[in-house]
Nucleic acid binder design. Sequence first.
DNA 1: GAGGTAATTGCAACTTCTTGCACAAATGAC
DNA 2: GTCATTTGTGCAAGAAGTTGCAATTACCTC
Lengths: 156, 156
Amino acid sequence: MTGHATIAESLREEGYRLTPQRMMILAIIYDSEGHLSAEEIHQRVRQQYPFVDISTVYRTLNLLKKLRFITETDLGDECVRYELVDKGRHHHLICRQCGASFALEHELLAPLAPRLLEKYGFAADLDHFAIFGLCQQCRPEGPALAAKKGQQHGDA
Amino acid sequence: MTGHATIAESLREEGYRLTPQRMMILAIIYDSEGHLSAEEIHQRVRQQYPFVDISTVYRTLNLLKKLRFITETDLGDECVRYELVDKGRHHHLICRQCGASFALEHELLAPLAPRLLEKYGFAADLDHFAIFGLCQQCRPEGPALAAKKGQQHGDA
DNA sequence: GAGGTAATTGCAACTTCTTGCACAAATGAC
DNA sequence: GTCATTTGTGCAAGAAGTTGCAATTACCTC
């Protein structure tokens, strides 16, 4: 059984029906390397089933999100993206000035979970965070030691 | 000079104009205790200036957000809320099952910033996080030791 | 205080995502 | 395989937020 079929089977075990639409959306997310937007998923689905509606895509994404098979991450302006949870936990550092995005391995955030559990009894979903800020290039006291202060090399 | 007037002055120093609309929106956010939605802000503004458009509210909120006078936080479904940054940094633990929200003091998250700066040269904006997960009541191995397993006391 | 200029606003159209509803189809029983 | 049940889908309308544009107005200079 291939990867997305495993998730599909779990869906069915939870009492949800396995429709071709759901299978296709799962397969597309599974096969994709990076993060997909709802619109991208919709377009790929339509290459096979041209009559699938965008509302079905959103409803399926919300279901998969609720069951925690996928994560939804807002990677900056106009970019909500979806990805399988178990494709490896990772997070993003996103520069609010230039929009650049950097990967952040899970290890740096991981210690937070046990501390939240211990202190608040709260089991945090640290699946896929997007942390905004300023990258090295855009910090005023950045690499060139404020030589470019006031300049921007882009705008998020 | 009252609090919101200080921010207004900063706005002007940055080259932005002080319009009555902006002053009012600032005053409303400043005077409010909790987190306000765009719609709430719009309604309060209209009590004084009935002709202010919702788009002006959104544009002003986006400007204040860009200048980091306010934070925008998604506190669960259908709830994007705005708050002054310097009213004290705090974060939220939000239960995805029952929707309950718990305050999280900044201290627990604060150590992250220097580590991101050191390791990635990234100056993170750790202003106002919303961390989703399961609260003590909703965890299967929660307070009553799995007695209520399978039950939900609400739905986010 | 008057005038010029460019930022800001209100309006309307638009995009993105959600929801209600009637019909279609996945599942389970026979 | 057929039938009944109940979930899921497509469509269209709606809610939330954004954008283009002409008119307004805050701010600077005189």
